[in-house]
Design a protein around this nucleic acid. Structure first.
Lengths: 243, 243
DNA sequence: CGCTCAGATTGACATGCATCAAGTTTTCTG
DNA sequence: CAGAAAACTTGATGCATGTCAATCTGAGCG
C-alpha cells in the first residue's frame, strides 16, 4: 500500500498504541485502493474479509430488506468501518457504497483477528472502539424510537451546527434524500418538515442551514447527552453512525 | 457473593476462558443481590459502576427522553448487561428495572477494566461479546427502519416460535404493553395488529400464540439472516436486545 | 450556452398509527 | 373471596407520514 497513508492510520485510536512492528505487519498485508463514485464495494451478506479504512472521500452504509433500503451511516476520513463483522468472521450486515471518489485501505480480517491475540495494547484498543460503536448505535436507536421525525430533523440540524463549531450557518454535508433515509423518513416529508421548522428558529436555503433562533431550536430538540452526546474521550472514529 | 452462583457465570462465554485465579478474583470483588419486582436499579445517566449479571428473574432496559420512554431490551438469565458502559467508564445509556423478583451479580467496573488488561483470554472474550452486541443492535435498528409495525410484529412472533423450538403454539414471555413499546408502537395498535394477523396465519388467545399457517406467516415476515438471524457461534448472552 | 437529468419541492390524496374514551378481562391484594 | 388496580380490547377520531404526480431547480456535460 501507499507509504504516505501510514501516519494517518497510525494516529487512529485503534492503532495508536500498537507495537510498531505489529502495525507495520498489518499495513504490509493491507491494500490501498481507489473506488469511483457510486460503487457498491460491499454487499450485505458478503463474508467479512477486510476491515475498511476510509482515507479520502466518503462511504454510505445502507441496510436492505425486501427491496427497501435505508441509510444507516456515512463514513468519512479518517475512520474505519465494519470492524465487528471482521472480528466475528461473520457476514457484513450492511451494504457499503461510495458517495464520491474514495480511497480505502483494506486490512485483511484474518490478520486483524490474529493480531489482537498477540498485541494486548491492540486488544484494548479494539475493546474501546467496539464499546464506543455499540453505544453510538444504542443512542441512534433511542433517537429513532423516542423522537418523531420532526424532532429528529431538528436534532440533526442542531447537532451539526455544533459540529460546525457552533456556527449560525453551515452547509449540509449530504444530499437531502440521503439525509431523509438516514432520519427514517421520505424526501418529501423531510422537505416539508424543513420548511415548517422555520417557526422553530431554523431557515433552509438549498443546502445552506441558517440558525435564526438557537434558543427556540434548542427548546424543540431538548438535547440529551445520552442521545446526542459523544462519549468523553471518544474516538469519533469507527462507525459511530455519523452522517 | 453466594458460592453456588460461580459455575453458571464461569460457563458464560465472557468468563469461560479466563485464568481461574483471575475469575476467582473478579467474583470475590462482586456482590450478589436480590431486587424486588418493579425496582429501578439503574437510572440512565448514572455512572457505570458495575457490570450486571442476571441470575434469576428478568430486567427491562428502557430509554427515556422528554418524559417518554421505550423498552430497548429484556435481559434474562444467565446473561450480562451494560458491559460497554463499564468498559468506557461512561454513564449508562439506559434505565434498568426489574420485571419480577430478580437476582443479580454485580461485578465492579474498575476490576473489570483492569482485568482485561491482565488476562488476554478475557480481553478476547470481551471483544467477541462487544462485537456480538454491536451487531445485534444494528440488526434491531435495521428492523425498526426497514419494516413497518405490522411486519415487526409478525417477525417477532415467528422468531419466538422458532426460539420455542419451532412449536406451533407458545406463550408470550412479556406483557403486551411492554412488547408494544419494544416494537415501537402503542398497545392499542399492537392489539389491533395482532387481531388482523389472523389472516396471515397467526391466532392470538390472550398470551397464547398459535401459528395456524406457517407458510403464510413466513411469506409476510420474509425472514432475513441479516436481521432476524443470530451470528453462528453467538453467545446469545449479553445485551443482544432479546425480548 | 443550452440540454439533460437527477434531485428537490409542492400539492392532492390515502393510510398507518396515535390519541382519547369507554368498556372488558385479568391479576393482584387485603 | 371480594374489591381494586392494572392490563387489554374496542371504537371513534385526528394527525403524521407515505404515496403519487407534477413541476421546479441546479449541476454536469456536450
Amino acid at each position: 500500500m501507499r507509504p504516505d497513508t501510514d501516519p494517518q492510520i497510525r494516529h487512529l485510536p485503534l492503532f495508536r498504541d500498537m507495537v510498531q512492528a505489529n502495525f507495520t505487519e498489518l499495513m504490509t498485508a493491507s491494500y490501498d485502493q481507489i473506488f469511483p463514485p457510486g460503487l457498491e464495494m460491499i454487499r450485505q451478506g458478503d463474508p467479512a474479509d477486510f476491515l475498511h479504512i476510509v482515507m479520502e472521500g466518503s462511504v454510505e452504509l445502507v441496510g436492505q430488506w425486501a427491496g427497501r433500503e435505508c441509510t444507516m451511516a456515512v463514513v468519512r476520513p479518517v475512520s474505519t468501518f465494519i470492524l465487528a463483522a471482521c472480528i466475528r468472521d461473520a457476514p457484513y450486515l450492511m451494504t457499503a457504497r461510495t458517495l464520491e471518489r474514495t480511497r480505502i485501505v483494506l486490512v485483511p480480517a484474518s490478520d486483524l483477528r490474529s493480531m489482537f491475540r498477540r498485541d494486548p495494547e491492540f486488544a484494548v484498543a479494539v475493546i474501546n472502539e467496539l464499546a464506543a460503536c455499540y453505544r453510538s448505535v444504542v443512542r441512534s436507536a433511542k433517537s429513532m424510537k423516542l423522537r418523531n421525525s420532526r424532532e429528529r430533523v431538528a436534532a440533526y440540524l442542531l447537532r451539526h451546527s455544533i459540529i460546525a463549531g457552533g456556527a449560525a450557518s453551515y452547509t449540509l454535508a449530504v444530499e437531502k434524500r440521503l439525509l431523509a433515509s438516514y432520519l427514517g423518513m421520505t424526501p418529501e416529508n423531510l422537505s416539508r418538515t424543513l420548511k415548517s421548522l422555520e417557526s422553530n428558529g431554523i431557515k433552509i436555503d438549498g443546502a445552506r442551514v441558517i440558525i435564526t433562533d438557537r434558543a427556540k431550536l434548542t427548546a424543540l430538540v431538548k438535547p440529551d447527552k445520552l442521545i446526542d452526546g459523544l462519549d468523553v474521550g471518544s474516538t469519533a472514529t469507527g462507525t459511530g453512525l455519523i452522517t
